[in-house]
């Protein structure tokens, strides 16, 4: 008798929970955790700000200013993941003279957690990239370049799992088709693997096997093309279980992250912040931890 009564009460309680807006449901006692993703793409060796005389980006960018901004955000929330979507190299004499040494050293100093490889990161060949790897304290993540017959073998990871405040974040990385962009003399025996197939493998692994709370794809595929070519938009629409795609290559200035529907009809965010380090992207993910939180299905409104 007692048991029946208990079950009935529980089901009523559950029903009541499911009608209430999620915000109120958790507002009272649930613990909130915030993960801040900061990201850059296509910085292209722009270590110093653009000169005052630059027609487009006068006085913008610069590594020293980027770090002071990052530090300010870290003081506000220590649970930061700092990421880059490739084309770290090439664009100023810093690269021509030092081959990417300073770029990697500064990213390490800024506490970057991970980056993926852009086509210009091959500009001094796989050898040139491998030579700079000792200067990188961040993870170089590449899921679809097979470096097994090159000097880069073992220097990249197909994915990495970061845990921040107990939240499990899986990051994988996709690079662009090298043919036509990077000569074979530079890419040597690097094999480009189909990004869509690899993305499916990676999301299965990260979301379903590793049970990550967030899956992030660092992509150097490019935002969107007028012709038939894999892009961040196509990747978002033709996969599932990716929460955020941080893009690069097309130097696209998205005024805000774009929300697309994935294959399963769920939302995916795609963001890209131009190039040359003139912007820093910031995406905050707010979680509630609560064992009864099974049916959060309503909108929190904050503008």
């Amino acid at each position: 008798m007692e048991r029946r009564s208990f079950l009935k009460q529980t089901s009523i309680a559950t029903a009541a929970f499911s009608v209430l807006p999620a915000f109120e449901t958790f507002g009272a006692k649930a613990e909130t955790k915030k993960i801040t993703i900061l990201h850059t793409n296509d910085v292209h060796s722009h270590i110093e700000p653009f000169p005052a005389t630059d027609a487009s980006f006068a006085n913008q960018g610069g590594a020293a200013r980027r770090l002071s901004l990052i530090n300010r955000i870290r003081q506000e929330n220590p649970n930061v993941l700092l990421l880059d979507a490739g084309d770290i190299f090439q664009g100023t004499p810093y690269f021509n003279f030092y081959g990417g040494e300073l770029e990697f050293k500064l990213m390490s100093m800024m506490g970057y957690d991970a980056a993926t490889i852009g086509n210009h990161d091959f500009d001094n060949g796989v050898d040139g990239l491998a030579k700079q790897m000792p200067n990188a304290s961040f993870k170089m993540i590449s899921s679809n370049y097979d470096f097994s017959n090159t000097i880069m073998e073992g220097l990249t990871k197909p994915y990495e799992i970061f845990i921040k405040d107990g939240i499990k974040i899986g990051v994988f990385g996709l690079g662009i088709q090298l043919k036509g962009l990077v000569t074979e003399a530079l890419s040597k025996e690097t094999q480009y693997l189909d990004p869509l197939e690899i993305a499916q493998d990676m999301t299965r692994k990260l979301k379903h096997e590793e049970k990550c709370d967030l899956v992030i794809c660092l992509s150097h595929l490019g935002y969107e093309y007028r012709f038939d070519k894999i892009s961040d938009v196509k990747l978002a629409q033709n996969t599932q279980d990716i929460d955020l795609i941080i893009g690069g290559h097309t130097h696209t200035f998205l005024p805000k992250p774009v929300v697309l529907q994935n294959k399963a009809g769920r939302d995916v965010l795609v963001n890209q912040v131009g190039w040359a380090g003139i912007n820093l992207g910031r995406i905050d993910f707010e979680f509630t931890s609560s064992k009864s939180a099974k049916t959060a299905s309503s909108a929190v409104i904050r503008v």
């Binding site: 006085n59 107990g166 931890s289």
Partner: peptide
């Protein structure tokens, strides 16, 4: 397993301008 629910996402683009201090 981890028993967390994603509640909200906020995206902000931060411009690196000369109003920021240099580290």
């Amino acid at each position: 397993q981890s028993q967390v629910t994603l509640k909200a996402i906020e995206g902000t683009q931060l411009a690196i301008t000369d109003s920021l201090a240099q580290d």
